[in-house]
Design a protein around this nucleic acid. Structure first.
Lengths: 344, 344
DNA sequence: TTTAGCACTCGAACTTTTTGAGTGCTAAAC
DNA sequence: GTTTAGCACTCAAAAAGTTCGAGTGCTAAA
């Protein structure tokens, strides 16, 4: 631990990690000398590996097996060793762009597609957290009368997000009243964020002015109902991909993972956390309670609309994940999505 | 085969099936005499079971194991033996109703919720096929201008289904033109089904009248773009539930199942097929190519809006499924959904 | 400092043995 | 003619025992 890692140590650690990433088997000293053209004998490598184990970077599942990297080793790997390799080949870029036919899709569809995209290109799980509704900018509201007592309220945000809600009314409201209500609201709420809209509506409900105008009171009540929901959506795609990972081959483990990701609240916490900082972030196994148990890692990046960070997306895979491959994928996808969501 | 099934044979077959459903283990003659209070010795039961095997209703995985029902036996079971037990307890009904907070949800959300509901109450997979968009009745169309070259087209059906699409336009279209376009279309398309709308739009595109009115031509082109998509949506929920089924304990099998249900086209075929007949239908293992390989069964029921069968929902589980429990769940849920989707 | 050599370890894979649930058949009992 | 007790037989699954080999740590020589 205290001793600084030598250049040679680094190279060998890197070799162990990379072998382990591809094979999922404990790596022995022989294997390394063969595959990684180091001019060293297995015995020497063994000595170094022994040092690395001392430092808490490697462990062996049992005496007579090879060694596997610890979470600490992965952390070191992604922080310092991996640095240089972060650009995507033109081919991969093309592949990502080709895969994503986003024309004519509204934001929710774009994000879902992005999640699928992340999962297929990485061959792990793709995850996208949608922007909080509250941060969207109100554009316009519409009341569509479906039948005498049923009204469909449609809320359109500046970025093209549509939210709708069926409302049942006590008494029938004539069509022209609905139009007037919508006009009134649209005038009042133009350009506010949804969060501000919510505040405004609540304030308005109290005000004198409204109390004497029953139509406007109704308008506000209806729109308040429409806007009430605010669950942050998470798109999680490609869960079947992790079935192919050898470390999850046994049924019990699989079940555990599926259950863990079924309730999305823990995942939400984690994604929220990764929204604090901008750009690519990596959570490795034990660094998060959700990932720890299952031996998973998460690579995320925030995405923007305009200049504001609004959401986060990423890839979830085994701790033994091809970070060098996944990081640029996540990075590039985030930038792509940011561009697609631009409100122009 | 040729010999008709005796009353005693029926009772024993029923016993085998019910035991097998609960334990997932081959059932032996001893077990039956103990658990099912038949006044018979194991030896007698053995003779009868031997007959049943002859008839192709039972098989044994190997000589010294108990017996398991064949698909043919399940078929017989659900057709003739099960009949009487098809009503749901009040408690279960209450549970289903309680689970489903549908207030204010549009049809798509209702259906998704229904699928989840089916999966949790049955503890298998829930599946719902949404009504074909083409069968919906056009209610109104709206063009919302988001920015100079981006228009959000919103299509509302009579039943509250909302479909929207972002359109990029070459030149800027003024707000009042958008309103006029919408009015024109709404007048023209009122009350048609979406299928008819599509035809009408294509016909209109050809017509003389439109050719000289560029605004209307534009309107029709835009709405035609909006309406173009027609993929039938399928909501499949609770896939994690099948992880708990002992017959799928090994990883390879699991993977196979997940892969099979990932591409939904085969499932779509099957669901389409079950829409031919009204009410509850059951597909057992070998009766369908999709289910055969994985040893699964499907219990479906059609649901209606008004008097028209519009969609189908159901439960997918192992062939060894608690049919007696699942059938009423599916039946009741279908009726519930039909009621919720009523357009009044 | 590096490396060849060697005894040692220990899980994985394979083989053998044991166990017991379950069968089919026969002959006696009802 | 059914039904049942009795018994030899079967065969997968579990348990116990073997073998195998990748990999280690240590020592001593290069």
């Amino acid at each position: 631990m205290e001793e600084q890692l030598s250049e040679r140590g680094k190279r060998i650690l890197e070799a162990v990690i990379e072998d382990y990433i591809t094979t999922a088997e404990p790596v022995g000293s022989r294997t390394i000398t063969r595959s990684h053209a180091l001019a060293l004998s297995p015995a020497t490598v063994r000595n170094v590996m022994s040092d690395l184990e001392e430092m808490g970077l490697l462990t062996s599942p049992h005496t007579s097996a090879g060694r596997i990297p610890t979470d600490k080793a992965y952390r070191l790997y992604v922080n310092s060793i991996l640095e240089a390799k972060q650009n995507l080949t033109a081919g991969k870029r093309e592949e990502i762009r080709r895969h994503c036919r986003m024309a004519g899709k509204d934001p929710a569809q774009v994000l879902k597609e992005a999640s699928r995209l992340l999962s297929t290109t990485s061959s792990y799980m793709g995850v996208v957290m949608a922007p909080r509704m509250a941060a969207n900018v109100f554009h316009q509201m519409e009341f569509v009368k479906l039948s005498s007592h049923r009204i469909l309220a449609i809320l359109v945000s500046q970025n093209g997000t549509v939210q709708n809600r069926l409302l049942e009314t006590e008494e029938e409201i004539p069509q022209e009243d609905l139009v007037r209500m919508a006009n009134y609201l649209n005038g009042m709420l133009q350009g506010l964020t949804i969060a501000q809209v919510r505040e405004r509506l609540l304030a308005e409900l109290q005000s004198e002015k409204v109390r004497y105008d029953s139509l406007m009171a109704k308008a506000i009540a209806l729109s308040e109902q429409t806007i009430r929901t605010d669950s942050t959506e998470i798109f999680l795609e490609g869960q079947a991909n992790i079935l192919d990972q050898p470390e999850f081959a046994d049924a019990a483990k699989m079940r555990e993972i599926f259950r863990a990701f079924e309730k999305k609240s823990l995942l939400l916490d984690l994604l929220d956390r990764s929204m604090q900082a901008e750009g690519v972030q990596i959570f490795i196994g034990s660094e998060s309670p959700l990932l720890k148990v299952e031996g998973m890692s998460l690579v995320t990046s925030t995405y923007l609309t305009g200049k504001d960070t609004v959401g986060v997306l990423g890839v979830i895979g085994p701790t033994r994940m091809g970070y060098g491959r996944v990081i640029p994928i996540v990075d590039y996808t985030a930038k792509l999505i940011s561009r697609l969501l631009e409100t122009e």
